[in-house]
Write a protein that binds this DNA or RNA. Structure first.
Length: 455
RNA sequence: GUAGAUGUAGCUCAGUUGGUUAGAGCACUGGAUUGUGGUUCCAGGGGUCGUGGGUUCAAAUCCCAUCUUCUACCCCA
């Protein structure tokens, strides 16, 4: 009995049709990145475990895929260690490599390792798969793609501005209406300071981040549970419902609320500058200050970005921010960076729902030349060659099968035209071109066919 | 890690209070049609009913265990 084929949990196969659509997204993002002067790098699927461990918190360490050492992987392990249990140091002896969990940490490793070859500010982009040993669910996989662009070695807020422009350009090109949300971690720190809980910054922001999902009351309940006093929650309330119709009005309102928190005011200055620099540029999408935007927060220190689609209910489809000390853990201090990542898998779902993939993105073979047998094949080979030389994607059916079967092949592969070149055509010198959608047939010379299809 | 569902043909799913040889649609192959497809009609192939055990004269159906996949929570993209 043959083994039933399957793939690991949370992974997916992609059909030719799906790949055409995915490549449309990747190519669109790639073009914009390159237009803004970012250059592509790739890093290995696997990194040394020491590079990955401890970078994503305890939870992250658990979600890392670890690769069992090759050969006699038990040789370093003593019987005593096995009896004590499988956790902790035993991992280091059984496995020294792991699959990358994101593209940011490998990038930090890359920057430090190649610091002498790199021209700073370094603008790189990277489109590769990452792996997480998470429980899969809707929109969540164990293997998925990230499309990162980061610039490191520059503190200038011009970079933040350019990132907003890139986001705007990508979604304009993809024809998706989005809202670009922006916040600043320094402002969040300032708010925590102002309400008297500077030490609870993470708890406060993680709770605030959920407001869209679970509502105001549930957020307050969670804050109380984390030990935030009712007085402090009352002080938080005006921040969460910031008054003002424009971003500038909101910033003014925020300035009054934040008082004299030094870090908070620094954050306001930063976000003001980004808005000011963007003032004279026409954006296609809305840019909105959103104080409830927090994101993981693990390493962000300045601007935070997140993008949501306006016409489809879906989580964030793009996110990023500034981090001041990404490379410090690998021994290179004071290198600040800012970057974004497009969630290609979710963008795919959004476009599918909007029916937004352009015809041209899923175009395959244009012409199938039917196979009438050995004698006719000689001419058919010439025809397919001429078509290809004229940049028309075409194929010759490789078997002398029944016409029904060959026509079916064209239908099932969405090939819009077939050419019949049998004995009749060969004696008349004119080929039969059949439009597979309308059923219409014409007797044409090869040049006329190129004219007909070429445009 | 917690909770709830799920598993029957390549795919999507029926299958009654347990009862002969487990069905349908799609897909595939052949024919109606040896130079005309996407429509129609006819025929055909394809199943350890997730796995292991138990109850029973009899199990896809009931019980137990186990695995798979999915959904939600935590967390994340």
């Amino acid at each position: 009995m043959a083994q039933k084929p399957s793939i690991p949990k949370g992974t997916r196969d992609f059909s030719p049709q799906q790949m055409a659509k995915r490549n449309y997204i990747f190519n669109t993002i790639k073009k914009v990145y390159e237009l803004f002067g970012y250059h592509q790098i790739e890093t290995p699927a696997m990194e040394n475990l020491s590079t990955l461990m401890g970078k994503y918190g305890d939870e992250g360490d658990k979600l890392l895929f670890k690769i069992l050492n090759s050969g006699d992987y038990l040789k370093k392990v003593t019987l005593d260690e096995i009896e004590k249990g499988v956790s902790g140091q035993l991992t280091n002896k059984l496995s020294e490599k792991g699959l990358r969990y994101d593209l940011t940490v490998p990038f930090a490793r890359y920057v430090v390792q190649h610091r002498n070859e790199i021209q700073f500010p370094f603008k790189r982009y990277q489109i590769q798969a990452v792996w997480r040993a998470d429980r899969p669910q809707k929109g969540r996989y164990r293997e998925f793609f990230q499309c990162d662009a980061d610039v490191v070695g520059s503190n200038s807020l011009l970079n933040e501005m350019e990132i907003v422009l890139m986001i705007d350009k990508v979604f304009k090109a993809l024809n998706i209406n989005v809202t670009i949300k922006i916040n600043n971690r320094k402002i969040l720190a300032g708010i925590a300071e102002t309400i008297g809980y500077a030490d609870k910054l993470i708890d406060i922001t993680v709770a605030m981040d959920k407001i869209d999902k679970i509502g105001t009351e549930a957020v307050y309940a969670e804050l109380r549970e984390k030990g935030i006093s009712d007085d402090a929650i009352n002080m938080l309330e005006p921040f969460m419902n910031l008054q003002g119709n424009t971003n500038n009005a909101k910033i003014n309102c925020l300035g009054q609320l934040i008082g004299d928190s030094a870090i908070g005011n620094k954050g306001i200055l930063e976000i003001e500058e980004v808005f000011n620099r963007l003032k004279n540029i026409d954006l296609h999408n809305e840019l909105e200050l959103d104080l409830t935007l927090a994101r993981g927060l693990s390493y962000y220190t300045g601007a935070i970005f997140e993008v949501v689609a306006n016409d489809v209910k879906m989580g964030s489809i793009c996110g990023g921010g500034r981090y001041d000390d990404l490379t410090g853990i690998f021994g290179l201090k004071d290198v600040s960076g800012v970057g974004i990542s497009f969630g290609a898998d979710r963008i795919y779902d959004v476009l599918n729902e909007l029916d937004g993939f352009p015809e041209s993105s899923i175009k395959g073979t244009q012409v199938l030349i039917l196979n009438f047998g050995e004698e006719e094949e000689v001419e058919a080979v010439k025809i397919v060659n001429i078509l290809r030389n004229n940049n028309i994607a075409s194929e010759l059916y490789p078997e002398n099968s029944k016409m029904k079967k060959q026509m079916n092949y064209a239908n099932n592969n969405n090939i819009p035209y077939v050419i019949l070149a049998g004995s009749k055509e060969l004696s008349s010198g004119l080929l039969t071109l059949k439009n597979m959608e309308s059923g219409e047939q014409k007797s044409l010379s090869i040049d006329a066919i190129i004219n007909e299809i070429g445009n």
